[in-house]
């Protein structure tokens, strides 16, 4: 409970700080650079979440433990939501800076492919009636999709040059001034905390649902 209150306060502080504490970065029109406090953590959480989902899938295939599948599924769903959020905030920013909502820059392309992959993942899960098959198929598909990722990294950047401001994804060598960096890291922490909290709730929901329907999961 204390953790939750702390987290909420922390988020509130971060939001306020994002608008009033940190100054706008140079090189971007107006106040648009403030998006970095929301967009980048969302993208980070989405990536982290998809990675967790992969780990869950692998664990499920080796151990056949339903808990691993709850993790895989919940993480995939949350990752999808955060990915959508990042896409939306990103495209608002794109509109403001580059003049159009969508430019097919490499990150935009790969995010679309990610959304497609996980959309397909959910469609597959909903189309398989048998509970255990559904889990196996979901895991197999996400691993198969993951195997194509290196090719995307390899292939996509060749098409167009990136429009994304450099360094925003690597806070280790910041082009940001100290205040901005503090708020950015704070926001990253807040988003991760929020994500873990929701994830835990989602996993619990999946568990409760599986109790409600006994024998499911064994066909």
């Amino acid at each position: 409970m204390i953790c939750k209150i702390l987290l909420i306060t922390w988020m509130a502080v971060v939001i306020v700080a994002a608008f009033f504490y940190a100054g706008p970065a140079t090189g971007f029109p107006g106040e648009t650079s403030r998006i970095v406090f929301f967009h980048v953590p969302q993208a980070w959480v989405a990536t982290f979440s998809f990675l967790l989902s992969m780990v869950g899938s692998l664990l499920y295939l080796t151990k056949r433990n339903p808990g691993a599948d709850y993790l895989a599924q919940s993480a995939a769903e949350l990752g999808f939501v955060f990915c959508l959020l990042a896409t939306i905030t990103g495209s608002i920013f794109a509109r403001a800076t580059w003049g159009s909502f969508w430019n097919w820059d490499p990150r935009e392309t790969s995010i679309v492919i990610l959304l497609m992959i996980y959309g397909a993942y959910f469609a597959l899960r909903s189309a398989v009636p048998d509970e255990e098959r559904k889990r196996v198929f979901g895991a197999v598909y996400s691993i198969l999709a993951f195997a194509t990722v290196p090719f995307l990294v390899f292939v996509v950047p060749r098409i167009t040059a990136s429009l994304h401001p450099e360094n925003t994804m690597s806070p280790a060598k910041p082009a940001m001034d100290p205040e901005t960096l503090v708020v950015f890291l704070g926001s990253l922490l807040a988003y991760t905390g929020l994500y873990l909290w929701i994830l835990q709730i989602k996993i619990r929901i999946s568990k409760i649902e599986s109790f409600k329907k006994p024998n499911i999961g064994q066909r």
């Binding site: 492919i113 497609m116 992959i117 959309g119 397909a120 469609a123 597959l124 189309a127 398989v128 009636p129 048998d130 098959r133 198929f137 197999v140 598909y141 198969l144 999709a145 194509t148 090719f151 995307l152 390899f154 292939v155 996509v156 098409i159």
Partner: peptide
């Protein structure tokens, strides 16, 4: 996989396309 699922035809395209995309671009 889709042989064991319902809504086969549409699902096949939806599942395969993201996997084939890198190949297609190449």
């Amino acid at each position: 996989m889709i042989a064991q699922a319902s809504a086969r035809g549409a699902l096949f395209s939806a599942l395969s396309f993201p996997l084939l995309l890198p190949l297609m671009i190449t």
